[in-house]
Structures are given as C-alpha cells and as structure tokens.
Design a protein around this nucleic acid. Sequence first.
DNA 1: CTTATTTGACCCGG
DNA 2: CCGGGTCAAATAAG
Length: 279
Amino acid sequence: MDRKLLASERTVVEVMSRIRKSAMQLGVLLREEVAGDSTVGVVFEELTSSISRVFAVLESMETVEGGQRLDAGLLSPPPHHHQISTKKRKIYPATDRRGGCRRRSHLPSKIVGSKTLNDGQTWRKYGQKEIQSSKNPRSYFRCTHKFDQGCMAVRQVQRSEEDPSTYLITYLGEHTCRDPAMAPQLFSTSDVSNTCLLSFGASRHRAEKEARVPASPFPSHKQESDEEGLSNLSTACSSPDYFVIPAAEKLAVMTPTSGFLADLYFEDVFGFDHDGFLS
DNA sequence: CTTATTTGACCCGG
DNA sequence: CCGGGTCAAATAAG
C-alpha cells in the first residue's frame, strides 16, 4: 500500500516530524497558556492542526499515488512557441506529464448510484471521455481543494445505461480537505458582526501548481441544481453534516479581540512592507 | 479581473 | 496500437 518516497518527499516528512516534535515541546512549555482560551492557545491549536493536516496530505500521497515524478524543475521547458498545427492548439513540450505521470493505480474505490451529483463536496471537472463499453460519456472530477489543500480525492461520474435517471459515481481516494466555505456555519448562532476574516483575496499569485495549506482561504459558494445535459455535472455544496477536523477555523473567529494578529500573520506570510520602494 | 468548464491533445499501461 | 485517464488552452461564466 505504500510506495517508495522520493528523497525530496522524505525530506519533507523528516522536517515535518521535527516541526511536530518542536511543537509538542512548545506545548509542554506553554501548557497553562495553551489550556485556556487565550490567544496563545488559539494560535497553538492552529499550529498543531495545520501540522496534522500536512501529515494527512503526506499520508495520502504515500498511499494514493501510483507513480510520480515531482523532481525539481531542473529541465526548463523549451519555449516552443509557434507551431504548425491544423488547429490553434498547443504542441506540448517533451516535459509534458499529462496523463499517466500521476495516474492512480487501482485504489480504494466506492461506486454508488445517485440521482444527484451533489454529495456535499466541491468538485471540479477536468475531463470527459467516451467509453467504449458504454454509450454514455464519463466525466472526471477532482476535489476543488486539490491545490490549496492538497486534497487528492477524485470521482468519476457516468450516467447509468439502464436507468439514465441515475448516475454511477465512483469515488477514488479520500478527502483530506476541509471545505472553508462551510466552516463559518459552525459558529452562526451568535451575532457575528465582525467581518475581519482572513482574506487572501489580494490576488498576487499565478501558479496553481504548488500546493499550499493556508489556514482559511476566502469564501466562495455555489448552489447548483443539477439537471439535464450529459455534460453539465458540476460543483456541489449542500448538507451540513460533515466530517471536520476540529479547531482549524478558530483563527477566523478570534479576530474580534485580536485583529492585529491577522495583520501580523499577513506580514509574516507574505512579507508585506509598509514603505513602498517602487519609485 | 477572477474561477470554472469544455474539449482535443497527450501520456501510459496493457 | 488502443482505451482510458489527465492536462491545459480556449472559452464561458460570474
């Protein structure tokens, strides 16, 4: 079930283990502060839960992926502009790794029949194929949080042949993500007039290649009624019942008393500066 | 602007 | 080579 890890991945595991160990030692040293609901406790909670999530991701990498590359990008992709194609589609460089580079081998999969595509998870469609053995195409979805949380869950959806009103949904891999759009609902009993949430909206990024694990991404929600068409299968978000890694969103609610922390956090992470140095 | 979907090209295992 | 899974440019949607 476990494959060989790459050297770089082993390094990550090793370093993360040290981080976890240090965090635990820190927890002992700060046990009285951590025990209470002080800011220290909240921050420490965030720290440990983030570490746990990283390990969850690492674990899924170990068990979910069949083959892999992931070597450092030493080979720069050749420019490869201008090509003569019948269409205006791109000719991919030799470094292209589409398809099987990370093709998952046979994995724990559950097949369910369902009338709806909404299963409480947010999915993003990334492909559709005609299948020889069936007249209905198969749609491929991956978790929306593949890149921001490293969630490797995937599902395949195909309309049933004998009963076209139902879908055959095959789930591959487990969700390691926590839907940020759903988190706020857990606290919605009291008045929440503070709008000072951590917002990563300041978009200054380009590559979605690298997986990051921020504490609380921006909210984005969608309610989609599924219907017709053999290709309109999209995102979903519905039921409140949910598995959740506890206490990872506290950071979002602690702001009323300590909004400054958010600012500090920002500066730390993004290296913001107060003095502009662009003439 | 952003994020999501569509869709042909590409890749890999058998 | 073929079938099926994935990538990513173009496009659509918000």
